[in-house]
Amino acid sequence: MVSALAALEEAYARRAQEGPVVGYVGADVPVELLTAAGLRAIRLTGDPESGSEPGDRYLGRGVDPAARSVLTRLLDGAFGDLHRVVVAHDCEASLRLFYALRELRRVEPGRGLPEAYLVDLLHLPHRTTARYNRRRVGEFAARLEAWTGRELDLAGAVAAHDERRRLLAAVAELRRAVPARLTGRQFLAVANAVLPVTEHFALLARLLSEADRLDEHTGRRVFLSGSAHDTPHVYEAIEAEGHVIVGEDHSFGDLAVTGPVGTASLDALAEHYHRGILTAHRATPGARAAYAAAAVRRCRAELFVAYCRESDEAPAWDFPAQRAALDIPAVLLEHQEYGRADLTALRKEDPCPK
C-alpha cells in the first residue's frame, strides 16, 4: 500500500479535483460552509512556470503576481469546470481579483468565466465588526443554499474541519521535532492536499500512525516569514541549500492550523473568522513580531528568513520589529520574483546579526 505521505503529496501535486467544483481564493473564506453545502471546493493557486500576461493586462503589474497568475489560469481554463469562484477580502490583491472577475464576466460573457462571489469579512476588534461579519456569513450561507437547493449540514461540516485542524496540528509537531520528520515542502503538500475534507483527515490520521517510518531531516532549521506560498517553488529552493523549513507564518502553512470552531452555528463560524490569522496584510508589526518570536522558539529554528515578493510589500514592513524580537540571525529577501528566490543573502554565514 502506498504511504499516507506519498498519497498526500500526489494529491497536492494534482492541485485539482475532477468534475464541477467551486474555487476559492484567500484565507478568509469559511470553507465549512462550502462543505456544508455538499460542494467540492479547491483553493485556487497560481503557477510561476506558465506566465501571467493576461492577468497582468487586467490587474496591472502593481498587484501581487500570485493574484495575477490565478486570474491568468482562470482565463486559460486551467482549473477545469469551475461553477463559481468565492473570493475573500483577506488582502488588496484578492479584492482586485474579485472586481476583475466580476467585470470581465459582465463585459466579456463569451469568455465563460465563473460567477464570482465576495466574502467580505473584516478583522477590527469591535462589536460592530463582529455584527458586520455575522451578517456576511449569514448571506454567504443563504447564497449557498440558493445555489444548491439544499439545506446546509453545518454540524457535520464544522466537525469535519475541526478534526482536520486537530490532525494538522499533530502533523505540524512532526516537522518541529529534532531532527524534523517532515520537510517544509512536505508539510506544505500535507496541509494543502486537494481532497474532500473527510478523505484529507483520514490520510492525516494514517500519516500520524506511520510517523515512526518517516525519514529524519537535518540541516539548518529555518522559520520562513513574509509572503504566502501557494506553490512549493521557494520551499524547494531553500531546502535544496541544505536547510529544512520547520515553521512559517502564512495561510498555506502553519497559520492554517487554527483552533476549532467548536459550536456548529453561524455565530461561532463568524467569530472564528473574525479572529482571523496573523498574516502580514491584517496584523500589526508588533503582533507579527510577537508571533514570530513564540513560533521560532516552538519550532527551535536557527535562522529567520523573511521572503517578500515584488508587489507584496506588506511583509517587509514587519521585518524590523520581527528582527528585534528574535534571538537568532534574521535575513530579509526582498522584491523576489513569484516562485523564485535569490538566496545570496541566505548563503552568508551570519546574514543579519543583531
Rank of each mutant, 00 (worst) to 15 (best):
2 V>W: 10
2 V>N: 15
7 A>S: 14
7 A>W: 03
9 E>K: 14
14 R>V: 06
20 P>W: 12
27 A>N: 12
32 E>P: 02
32 E>I: 02
33 L>K: 12
35 T>S: 12
40 R>N: 15
47 D>L: 13
47 D>M: 11
49 E>I: 03
49 E>R: 15
52 S>L: 13
53 E>L: 14
54 P>T: 12
56 D>V: 08
60 G>T: 03
62 G>I: 09
68 R>N: 10
69 S>P: 09
75 L>Q: 06
82 L>V: 10
92 E>P: 04
92 E>K: 09
96 R>W: 09
97 L>M: 04
103 E>C: 00
104 L>G: 10
106 R>P: 02
106 R>F: 03
107 V>E: 13
110 G>C: 09
111 R>G: 11
112 G>W: 07
113 L>H: 01
117 Y>Q: 06
121 L>M: 12
122 L>H: 08
124 L>N: 13
129 T>S: 13
129 T>D: 07
131 R>A: 11
137 V>T: 11
139 E>F: 01
146 A>C: 02
148 T>E: 05
151 E>R: 15
152 L>C: 03
153 D>M: 15
154 L>I: 06
157 A>R: 09
158 V>T: 02
164 R>V: 03
165 R>T: 05
166 R>H: 05
168 L>K: 00
172 A>G: 13
173 E>C: 00
174 L>H: 05
176 R>H: 11
177 A>P: 03
177 A>H: 10
182 L>M: 08
188 L>H: 09
190 V>P: 04
193 A>I: 07
194 V>M: 08
197 V>R: 04
200 H>L: 12
202 A>L: 15
203 L>P: 08
204 L>P: 01
205 A>N: 13
208 L>M: 05
209 S>C: 00
210 E>A: 00
211 A>D: 04
219 G>H: 09
226 G>S: 10
227 S>M: 08
232 P>K: 02
232 P>Q: 03
234 V>C: 02
241 E>C: 11
242 G>T: 10
242 G>D: 11
245 I>K: 00
249 D>N: 15
250 H>Y: 13
251 S>G: 14
251 S>A: 15
253 G>L: 07
256 A>L: 11
258 T>V: 03
260 P>L: 06
261 V>R: 01
261 V>T: 02
262 G>E: 04
265 S>M: 07
266 L>A: 01
268 A>L: 01
270 A>F: 07
272 H>G: 01
276 G>L: 06
276 G>A: 09
276 G>V: 12
278 L>P: 07
282 R>A: 14
283 A>N: 00
291 Y>V: 06
295 A>F: 00
303 L>P: 03
303 L>V: 06
309 R>D: 08
311 S>C: 14
313 E>L: 14
314 A>C: 05
315 P>H: 08
315 P>M: 03
316 A>N: 05
320 P>Y: 02
321 A>Y: 11
321 A>E: 15
327 D>Y: 00
328 I>H: 06
329 P>S: 12
329 P>C: 10
329 P>H: 08
331 V>L: 12
332 L>A: 05
332 L>V: 04
340 R>P: 05
343 L>E: 10
346 L>W: 08
346 L>M: 12
347 R>L: 14
351 P>A: 11
